[in-house]
Amino acid sequence: MNNNWSWETFMDALPFVLQGLWITVSLTITCYLFALLFGFVWTFLRRIPNRFFNWIVTWVMEFIRSTPPLVQLFFLFYAWPMIPGIGVTLSPFTSAVLGLGIHFSTYIGEIYRSGIDSIDKGQWEASKALNFSTVDKWRRIILPQAIPPTVPMLGNYFIIMFKEVPLASTIGVAGIMLMANSYGAQNWSYLEPLTIVGIIFLVLSYPSAVLIRKLEIKLNTRFDKNAAIK
């Protein structure tokens, strides 16, 4: 193996690794949107007023959340097709969307819940007093208040998702991580392409984090939770 840092290799690997950038970004976005949607499923399931059912949902979420996403990816990619009856072969990309999407939807669901829980009791009573239908109550009163304060937290999960996406290289999604590894395998020098991957992550995630911090400050001043009860 090549044991010296070489800028020549670095420049050589750069365009090669960058070929994977589009896949990495689009996988991040797809996984994230899937998690945002699926998060609602958990929130909905947890609101079903049955203690036993609630207990099951809580522990299923806990199970998904406290086991490694890497194993969950392997399960979907290698094991799912083998399950008699329901098994279908999933592409690496689809496996990653389902695996990472569901894994992080359990966190996102909790964020939605915290948003809904933070709504003052008076708001529920007011919508009852005004005789809103269930759909209108959620659409016009509850969600418009519950979602905005959670936006920075949801934004953080976009960055977290971005940093988890390279796990998908292990099942063959050709993002920057896989490109770096295959460049390494072909040329026997891994350090330069992996450094490129690190730099790409830093360059993309650091400004996003700063942006979200700014958004958070802005939202905190605009959206005063106590205004409704003052």
Partner: peptide
């Protein structure tokens, strides 16, 4: 915090000996 654990792991795997 800005890069992934998996990237760091592989990076260190190759970088530490070098």
């Amino acid at each position: 915090r800005g890069t992934s654990l998996i990237v760091q792991l592989f990076w260190l795997y190759y970088a530490i000996p070098m």
